[in-house]
Design a protein around this nucleic acid. Sequence first.
DNA 1: CGATCAGTTGAGAATGGTCAAATTCGGTGG
DNA 2: CCACCGAATTTGACCATTCTCAACTGATCG
Lengths: 243, 243
Amino acid sequence: MSILESPLTRKLSTFVALGDGDLETLARFHRRRRSFLPGHEMIHEGQKEPSVFILAKGWACSYKLLPDGERQIVDFQIPGDFLGLRSALLRTTDHSVEAITPIEASEVLASDIFEAFARAPRLATAILWAASRDEAVVVEHLVDIGRRTAEERTAHFLLELGARMELVGLGDRTGFDCPLTQYHLADALGLSAVHVNRVLRTLRDDGLLTFQKGRVTFDDFSRLTALAGFDTSYLDQDGPLLR
Amino acid sequence: MSILESPLTRKLSTFVALGDGDLETLARFHRRRRSFLPGHEMIHEGQKEPSVFILAKGWACSYKLLPDGERQIVDFQIPGDFLGLRSALLRTTDHSVEAITPIEASEVLASDIFEAFARAPRLATAILWAASRDEAVVVEHLVDIGRRTAEERTAHFLLELGARMELVGLGDRTGFDCPLTQYHLADALGLSAVHVNRVLRTLRDDGLLTFQKGRVTFDDFSRLTALAGFDTSYLDQDGPLLR
DNA sequence: CGATCAGTTGAGAATGGTCAAATTCGGTGG
DNA sequence: CCACCGAATTTGACCATTCTCAACTGATCG
């Protein structure tokens, strides 16, 4: 795959048009190709040397574990997303990242990123934009868990994933392929797996959304966005690409 | 107050020792002093021109409102914190910020920050560190709401605020002055104000923590941290300043 | 063909919400 | 100094969302 069609390039281009120098620097990020199997813990909480990856293929999740063994999934990462970027500057990594599917990723050294900041300011801005957007996603996730009912929350979260998949060309408003289990959803949404199951059932029975056999189908997109109160503006992705 | 004793300088110095050039650039951030009264909405969700402030005195909160009028507070800002930094690169601001107490702050232009990146790379790194730390705080807040019980959550949240206050010289492990109402806490913790009241009561009755008359008192710091499972490492503040 | 893992369903319990009514407390004006 | 006001806090009674435990189904895989 050429750098021009990579999910990350596609995503960053939503924000700024990248020049040849930017693309060249970006290509240099992709020299250390690595593969991981499902379940592999790519980044460990407490790690002293930060690792940063760019996800090219597959899904991962970042999470924190509590003393009692409970898990909170902070976010899922899809192609084009950075893994571990936030911890690049912290002296110890504050979360873990696990491969959900088989993964192909590029390992990036923190020093490569800092060099890029000096060499390709346009690209640097785009990377900071991606980081800001990732944080906006986490903030909206916080709102999901804090103030939305289980149904609104589930609908909102899956709509967001759909919008993010669409941005990298892996989905549209009919739905997207989704390798998550109901346990993953439960740990992300702060619910029990049993309750997630019941919520998915009522959403399906109401003709709103189907989560089955590795695919999320938006059965009634407009009623679903209304139920969830979903407004894409926080994703800041209605840019050059879409308009 | 000299730039050397400002809460922000104190905080950033935890991460790197700033040189004269850095301090000079930092001083230049403080040219536009502004004051706000309690309740004033300093930053509005949906705003097209981003505003960034550095908080010198007082407390603020960043939040999002839902269609049904419910509010989720994302974070409280205390002296030394940035307001609106995350939105500096997004094309429309994704949250609002309101003054809780009377506030003194410096307004910073996004362009000033970018200039600083070119001119004072050490300072730039420190600012990115502060932004990463802010995000780590939001992530831990997500864990609070998603996977901790109301009591653990309340204890953890107040312990975190205490640690942050300590970093800027406004608190210690006996407690800190805190202008929040129980409604603020409720909107931050994803609980009802009534339940927050009950939780605070049991924490007080158990001799763990007192939240009263504008002050949070840690009555039994070690039992409290044990209950909350509080580990400061995500705050990444055990740096030059403290050891 | 067992074993394992994801998904389903039911019943009862618990955490936290809602509604409504005090009570306290810091001001403010008389 | 005192009466009063509004905001914040407190408490009780009842309700509902969500959890836990437990059992059962169905698909996949060596």
